[in-house]
Structure formats: structure tokens, C-alpha cells
Simulated scan of single mutants.
Amino acid sequence: MTKKLYYDSADIQEWSTVITSAIEREDGIYVTLAETAFYPHGGGQPCDTGTIGGIAVLDVVLEAQEVLHKVAQLPGQTEVDCAIDWARRFDHMQQHSGQHLLSAVFLKLYQAATVSFHLGSDYATIDLDRSELSAAELAEAEQEVNRQIYLNRSIVSYFVTAEEMAKLPLLKLPKVTEDIRIVEIEGVEHNACGGTHVAATGAIGLIKLLRSEKQKGHVRVTFLCGGRALAAFNDHVQIISQLSVKFNTGKEEIMDRIGKWEQEQKLMQMELAAVREQNDSYLARELLAAAEADSRVIRLISDTRTLKDLQSLAAKLTALTDLPLLLLSAAENKAVLAHSGSAEFSCGAFFKAHLGGYQGKGGGSDKLAQAGFPSWEDALAFYNFAKEQF
């Protein structure tokens, strides 16, 4: 059985050992080691990665108390030097230790026990045995958990027997009855856990609570610890700095400036909508005036108008004429077919019958249909075909 060095010390980053076996499976090659500091998936914590004999470790799993290391290829020697991806490991240690501390704080402040923990690549979450959590409670928990970090309480782990475990103030009993590992935060909690942790709460750095939301009868709290929290803070500072430059104001006045900008945009959109409405009316009358006396369809190819613009124009035209309309957007390779209801054909049925021959997709009602094409050539070919059908 592999000796699990991560139980002796979570700070081991490099060591030398021997490969004791190699297993080839459908999903890849796995090796076992005489000693390993690679932590396998478990307890909500992802596995470590790194190298064995210079070969990348892709996954680490625990099967029947044996640690299996999935490698990119089999190392060429049995005696190997191993190295942990320390940045990944330390991040996991910060998040996992932070979760223990945060769970203890929620339990102390609100009697809200943690029912599940998830450590993702970007953020971590805990689900609390509580139906809701107010913003004030979230803020209070954040203040308290960071106060506990500043106290730099020691975090130790050790194995106990079932009899010794029975004397400890554990909130939740583990499923195992032997090799029971306890993680203790000095003066805060005892927790049965097999994960890797920092040596003291100060190494967590800080904890930032991002949000809380209801989740299947519980409250899910999303949070960041340590390096992740610092990276998020730096991202936010950069965004605020860019907004300050963009709006030419200090960060204290950004929201006021954004509010004024939104009002200006609303006014501009209203003015633009009015201009478009007037322009559509002018264009509709121009198209009707330019139509020949024996015209069977009103046609238009526009280089700038979108599908939405063409639909608006179609509404104007169908109110003024009983002729069918065939409109094409060169900007979006989209077509519109419409009529007032007096025509003896269905726009949607026409598109359904003929679009396939031009790689077009779309549909609609008897009075209005629209379609898109993968290229301008396809759109124009369909337009030329359709105009000859009326």
C-alpha cells in the first residue's frame, strides 16, 4: 500500500520514490508509488497534479486505499523524482481550510450547519442547513471569519480511534470506523476530514463572501479564499480604474455618471426610434411611388438595414398596399416576405417550400416570414428566385 505523505505533511512538494506497479486502462495509464504526496480526489477537494519522473500527472484517485496516478505516459524508469504543482495544492489548502473556518462561523453565529461543500476551479461553495440568509448576516459572517483568520489559530491534523473520537465535539460523525483523521482549528472546531490544510488560519489570507442564494431548501454561499480573493479584488480594481478613465471621474462618482449616461442613452434611443419611424414612412412612400403600374411585388435590397429594420418597414408597407413585399438585408443575409392579407399565398409556406434549395432557414405566418442564409450568394440567389414567383 502506498505511504500517503500528504498525511505526514501538507507542505511536501518534491520527493523521490519508486514505481511499484503500472496499470493500463481504457482511459489511460496509471501507476502506484511506494510513497506519494499527490492528494487524490476526496472530501470535496480536487486532486493534485504535477510530474512523476518528468511525466505529467493528469489525475489522482483512491481505490481500496491505494493511490492511483494517471500519467501522460509510462516513465522510462522505476526510480523517479516527483513534484507537486504547488500553486494548485496551496490554493486548494487555502480554500479547504477557509471552508472549515467559514462553516464553523456560520454554525456559531446562526446555528446553520454545512450540508455540502464544493471546491471548483474558480470559486468554492457551501450549502447551509437554512432556508435563507440576509445580506446583514452574510456581512457579519464575513467580518467574523476574517477576524478568526487574523488570530492566526493553529490548524493540526491527527488520527484517532473510535473511542478517542467519541470524546471529541464533532458535529458530524464520519462514515469510517478506523483510520479516522481529525482536523482541528485551535479553539474553533474539530472536524473529521482527509483533506490537506494550511498550518494556521493566517495562511488562508482572507475570505470574501460573494453571494448567497436559495438552493433546494438550503442556502448556498459562494466564496473565495486567499489568492483567489486577491485576484478577484485586483480584477475589480482594474475594472473600476478603467471606468474612472472612461467617464473621466473618480471612483466615488462612477455610479452617478453611469446613471446619467443611461438616461442620455434612453433619450438617444427614443430620438433614434422616432427618426427610424419617420424614415420608414418616407421610404415606404418612395418605394410605392417608384413601383411600376403593373408591379406584382415591392422589392428592396438594403446594405445597412437589419432584419428588425426590414420587419418594421414591412409593417409600414402592408398598411399602404396590398402588393406582396420582398425585402433583403445585405448586412445580415436575411430576407423578409410579407403581405397585407389579401394575397392568395402563405409567406411561411412559401419559405418552407423553397428555402432548403438555398441553404436558408426560417419561417413565419401567412402574412409575414423571415429567413437567414449562410452567405450573401445564397441570400441573393433566393431573392432573385422569389421575385420571379409573384
Rank of each mutant, 00 (worst) to 15 (best):
D8K: 13
D11L: 15
I12L: 15
W15N: 14
S16L: 11
V18W: 05
I19H: 02
T20H: 06
S21Q: 09
S21A: 15
A22K: 13
A22M: 12
D27L: 13
L33K: 10
A37K: 06
P40M: 14
G43F: 08
C47H: 10
T51H: 14
I52K: 09
G53S: 15
I55Q: 10
I55H: 07
A56I: 13
A56P: 11
V57E: 09
V57Q: 14
V57K: 13
V61Q: 14
L62W: 00
Q65V: 10
K70P: 09
V71Q: 05
E79W: 04
D85W: 00
R88A: 14
R89Y: 00
D91V: 04
Q94E: 11
Q95E: 05
F106D: 03
K108T: 12
T114F: 04
T114Q: 15
G120M: 11
S121M: 11
A124Q: 03
D127K: 13
D129T: 02
S131F: 04
S131G: 01
L133W: 05
A136H: 04
L138R: 10
E140K: 06
E142I: 08
E142V: 08
E144H: 00
V145P: 00
N146I: 07
N146Q: 06
Q148D: 07
L151C: 08
S157I: 03
Y158N: 06
A166C: 09
K167E: 08
L171S: 11
K172L: 07
V176K: 01
V176H: 05
T177S: 09
T177L: 07
R181E: 04
E184M: 00
I185W: 01
E186V: 07
V188Y: 02
E189C: 14
H190D: 03
N191P: 07
C193N: 00
C193L: 00
G194S: 05
G195M: 02
H197T: 00
A199H: 01
T201H: 05
A203K: 03
I207F: 07
L210C: 08
S212F: 05
S212D: 04
Q215H: 06
G217M: 05
R220E: 03
T222R: 10
L224N: 02
L230D: 01
H236P: 00
Q238K: 14
I239S: 10
S244Q: 01
T249V: 06
K251M: 08
R257M: 14
I258P: 01
W261R: 09
W261T: 06
E262N: 11
E264K: 14
Q265W: 05
K266H: 12
V275N: 02
E277R: 13
A290W: 01
R296L: 14
V297C: 15
V297P: 07
I301S: 11
R305S: 13
T306Q: 14
A314P: 06
A314V: 01
A319M: 07
L328R: 02
A330L: 12
S342C: 12
A343T: 09
E344F: 08
F345P: 00
F350N: 03
K352M: 08
L355Y: 01
G356K: 03
Q359H: 06
G360I: 04
G363A: 10
D366G: 08
D366I: 11
D366Y: 09
G372V: 04
E377P: 05
A381L: 13
F382P: 11
K387Y: 07
K387L: 15
F390L: 10
